[in-house]
Each structure stands twice: as structure tokens, then as C-alpha cells.
């Protein structure tokens, strides 16, 4: 048996190594709220409650089972947790009180950190743009974010999207809800330095977590 386990760890009969707790332990160490994964009791209420349920590759219930089954690549490369819209329906309903939304974001973020997250995933693209936009000054620049997203797939599709949304934009400008000059200048929050310090501290706390295993 010992021999079988060893070969399993070397990845030869992969099935034998699965259902070991290794990936679960990795998730517990590196994913925010990852220590909750083992508490899932497989009732399926999360999967049934999710408004995006039919569109997920794997509903949360399955993701948790896959983590326990040691399906590292399949989980981290999955598009599933990127589909979460943070409606918190599952969190409210989970009889075991798992912070499912947070875990989904935690796994997504861990996959991104490892570079395993699926490319061209719209939520992922948006998240990256949003994060960069937001942390630059500490304030989201709506004009830059919107335009950035419109033109992410090239000039032609960008122009098309702009033309599409132009009437809306004009309406917003007329109502005083949109300032086109923000695209050039933009403005910053009052205490930009404070925000920078806050983000720095957050990164330091993040770093205290066990480093990602590649």
C-alpha cells in the first residue's frame, strides 16, 4: 500500500493519488476562506439556488467535491468560479453557513495568482481592468474603464460598441451624470496617499499567507 501511495504521488496511477487531502490542504492554506471547503455536506442547495446555475461548468457543490477529490488542474483552470455574480443567494441558504461567494472569489483569485485562470474570460478581464483602474488613483474612472473595456478586442469592435452606446452616453452627459473630460484628466480622491498606504498594508497581510505553490 505504501508503494501504491508513493507511485500515486509521483503521478503514475493518478487515480490512486486522488482523494488524498493534498489539494484540499493547499486550498485551505492559500485560498481565502478555503478552510470552509471541508465543511460542505453536499446537499446541493447552493447549486439549486444559483441564478447562473445552468451556465456553470461546475456548481459550487461540485467545485468543493473536486477540491476534496484532488482535481487541482480541473478546478483552477475552470471557468466556473468566474461565473459567480456575488448575489449571495447560496451564502444565505447554505445550511452549513459556508461563505460560498467568498470561496469562489478566493479560488478564482488563487487561480489568477498561479496563472492558471482561463484566458479571455470576460469576468476575469473585467476584474483585471477594474482593479488596475481602481488602484491607480484610489477612485474608479468610469470613462477610462468603459472605454478600456470597449476597445479590449481591438479598434473596430471598440468603435462599434461606442457607436452603439453613444445615445446612452449623450443622455448621461445631458443629465450631468458623465463628464467626457474625465477621459483625459480624471480626478483623484482627497487622500490618495492614504489609499496607497492602505493597499500596501493589505498586500503585506496577503503576503503573510503561505506562498502560492506552483
Amino acid at each position: 500500500m505504501q508503494a501504491l501511495r508513493t507511485t500515486g504521488h509521483q503521478g503514475i496511477p493518478a487515480v490512486a493519488a486522488r482523494y488524498r487531502n493534498n489539494f484540499l490542504k493547499e486550498v485551505e492554506a492559500h485560498v481565502e476562506d478555503g478552510e470552509w471547503v471541508k465543511m460542505c455536506m453536499q446537499c446541493g442547495v447552493c447549486a439549486g439556488s444559483c441564478p447562473f446555475g445552468p451556465h456553470w461548468e461546475h456548481p459550487p457543490q461540485e467545485i468543493f467535491m473536486m477540491i476534496r477529490a484532488g482535481k487541482r488542474d480541473e478546478v483552477l483552470k475552470s471557468d466556473a468560479m468566474w461565473m459567480c455574480t456575488s448575489c449571495y443567494n447560496c451564502v444565505v441558504r447554505c445550511p452549513r453557513k459556508l461563505p460560498i461567494t467568498q470561496i469562489m472569489h478566493g479560488i478564482a483569485s488563487y487561480a489568477q495568482e498561479l496563472g492558471l485562470a482561463p484566458k479571455n474570460q470576460p469576468t476575469r478581464d473585467f476584474s483585471i481592468q477594474f482593479w488596475n483602474n481602481c488602484t491607480k488613483t484610489g477612485r474608479v474612472n468610469e470613462m477610462k474603464l468603459t472605454v478600456g473595456l470597449y476597445f479590449k478586442d481591438g479598434l473596430v469592435s471598440g468603435i462599434k460598441q461606442v457607436m452603439n452606446m453613444l445615445p446612452v452616453a449623450i443622455g448621461l452627459i445631458k443629465a450631468g451624470r458623465l463628464n467626457p473630460f474625465e477621459l483625459i484628466s480624471g480626478h483623484s480622491p482627497k487622500d490618495q496617499k492614504g489609499i496607497a498606504a492602505m493597499l500596501k498594508k493589505a498586500r503585506a497581510i496577503e503576503a503573510q499567507r503561505a506562498p502560492a505553490t506552483h
Binding site: 500500500m1 501504491l4 487515480v15 490512486a16 453536499q42 457543490q61 461540485e62
Partner: peptide, 18 residues
């Protein structure tokens, strides 16, 4: 030791576990 052959009812697949 032993191999336990079972059907994972959540992931819907045949699995062997040592």
C-alpha cells in the same frame, strides 16, 4: 492494501481509491 472501486455520485464518474 486494498483498492476501493466506486462511483462518485457528485462528479458522476468511476473512481478507484487505494
Amino acid at each position: 492494501g486494498c483498492n476501493v472501486n466506486f462511483r462518485d455520485l457528485i462528479l458522476n464518474e468511476e473512481v478507484t481509491l487505494g
